[in-house]
Design a protein around this nucleic acid. Structure first.
Lengths: 264, 264
DNA sequence: GCAGCTTGGATTGTATACAATTATACGAGG
DNA sequence: CCTCGTATAATTGTATACAATCCAAGCTGC
């Protein structure tokens, strides 16, 4: 049985260009429409290659495939019910995403993330989330602002109830809103990449994470700074938010899990 | 070669060496011949996919393929004397490099860069090159330091002589050294990506670029700050270096070339 | 025993066949 | 003249066949 069964194969779609970007408009069974910016949507649902890519990425990020594990084309292909061709193409993409390392004529191996890598990522994200918050202060739309406020409100609710899954999802979504609000495709794409990249790590530290409430409070402060059009403050808060997140991660045993290669 | 026998559109080929370069000679059904130097290797010298990737990347960056131009798998394959398979895989890689935009079931298009994108990239690079310089202050090796000094010295020499190509190459190399010196794979990879991305643009503004000497002087100051272990100063200088580079680019007519979408 | 060669199986690399999708041309009907 | 549908060509998507490569086990000769 294929894992890749197309749940809504009835979906119609067509492609159009708008301001130099190519979009795919999708009409679903219920008549609802949605536009996907294909350029930044590698999770192309409508091709085997895209679905294999998406599935493998998920499995790597979720930890199904361990670090340094070798992925074999035929095995993956059989498991997913497709031939080697789309699998190979997905591998090539995953390589550039940094999730796989391909050794010519040998094989594809799941990339390991060291504690040093995580540290570097948070350093970079600290700067870029700051820039993002600064830009968002100017560019955020009313709708985005409202979703942000709602997000924080909801997170508080779920925090009270102890709904860990929802909290994690809202946290992710908060950052996505911020990325979208900065009105820079380049920055948005870069930040989403890094965000994805550390999800693997967060997955493991989340269970023991007691930072939910503090994190949400920081979100609120960032949101308020943006609302008050105080770009400097928004930037600084976003910088610090990342640093705090990293510190918390270290406290929760990042080093034990990934080995301490950050020492030098 | 049984599988080549039937159709006359299929090409015969063999590989030969000439003066240390590996060529592939292609004989088509019509008897036309073409030789292609497929030794760009360094990375993947023994895989067609790798060579196709390198070749296409070079051709895109050098401007052989214009923006929004559609690349067809068979055409590229024939030109390079390979089948569609390695071409397709190279396309997938180029997509994640940001050089190609692949629309499912439609085609592969050379990515367009808008003036807004360039602006965003330089904003991001300004921050990250600053971080990079800061980290390099601590981590740079003696060899890297020496190469950096040599780079600046050479650049001055070629500046006097007006050797534009060498100046451009040394400029690129300076930044690469810096990226390597920060001792962060993550940061290095990110910065190299962005650097690559704007090379296309610089290619066009370089001819009219009178900033060579000023740029090199800034390199010298960054280098000296690193040598003096003054991380704060190195970071600030690197920040400013990017801002200056961008300002100069705008002055040299970036908007005319790429259209002004930066106004929002 | 062991260095080096040979061989066979497993795996990736490439080419090609065929299917699915999209673009284009053209003609019927209004 | 225009619009719409259909046929057809062009192009990409996927599967499969075959080639090249790698690796380890076993053999050979010393």
């Amino acid at each position: 049985m294929s894992y890749l069964a197309d749940t809504d194969s009835a979906a119609e779609f067509f492609i159009f260009k708008y301001k130099d970007n190519i979009f795919r408009e999708v009409r679903k069974g219920n008549g609802k429409m949605a536009n996907y910016d294909i350029k930044h949507d590698v999770n192309d649902k409508y091709s085997l290659r895209g679905r294999v890519f998406q599935k493998l990425r998920e499995d790597i990020l979720s930890g199904k495939y361990k670090e340094h594990e070798e992925l074999k084309e035929v095995a993956i292909g059989e498991e997913l019910g497709v031939s080697r061709t789309p699998v190979r193409e997905a591998f090539r993409q995953l390589e550039l995403e940094g999730l796989l390392q391909i050794v010519p004529n040998k094989g594809a191996y799941v990339t390991g993330i060291t504690a040093k890598d995580v540290k570097d990522i948070y350093m970079i994200r600290s700067l870029l989330e700051g820039l993002c918050a600064r830009l968002a202060t100017e560019k955020i739309t009313k709708e985005q602002m409202e979703e942000m406020e709602e997000n924080i409100y909801l997170a508080e609710f779920h925090e009270d109830k102890g709904h860990l899954d929802q909290i994690a999802e809202l946290d992710n979504r908060f950052h996505d809103i911020l990325y979208e609000a900065c009105d820079s495709k380049m920055l948005e794409h870069t930040l989403k990449d890094f965000h994805q990249y550390v999800l693997r790590v967060r997955q493991r530290t989340l269970a023991t994470n007691t930072r939910g409430r503090a994190s949400n409070e920081e979100h609120r402060q960032i949101m308020e700074a943006i609302k008050a059009k105080d770009a400097d403050r928004a930037e600084k808060l976003a910088n610090q938010h990342m640093i705090n997140a990293y510190d918390n991660m270290v406290k929760n045993g990042l080093k034990e899990i990934y080995g301490d290669e950050s020492g030098s």
